[in-house]
Amino acid sequence: MSVDIATVKRVAHLARIRVTEEEAAALQGELNAILGFVEQLNEVDVAGVEPMTSVIPMAVKRREDVVDDGGIAADIVRNAPLTDENYFLVPKVVE
């Protein structure tokens, strides 16, 4: 499978990355090189094979359902580019 320029732009929008016409053209070639490379996986017979879901077989760990952290709003927003009284600020989303 290979991607056309419209697909590159659509995927870039899905990924929320603005690309220029020039970048889209370069990316098209690069993505097709990668997609061409991974094509060889079609040679492998995967009938009846379970996809890997856990790297090391282990039960998912659980912890007590208790509050063990928190009350650090100022720490959490400290690195944000724009805040107001411990809130993150974003451009208007709802009219």
């Binding site: 590159v8 690069e30 993505l31 996986l41 492998v44 995967v46 379970e50 879901t53």
Partner: peptide
Amino acid sequence: KRRVLIGTYVLSAGYYDAYYLRAQKVRTL
């Protein structure tokens, strides 16, 4: 950017089984 776009593409609707699922099966092998 290149890798985020490849990742977004292989996970996008209609391609998940052909790419991601197959790769995870190969990983089992």
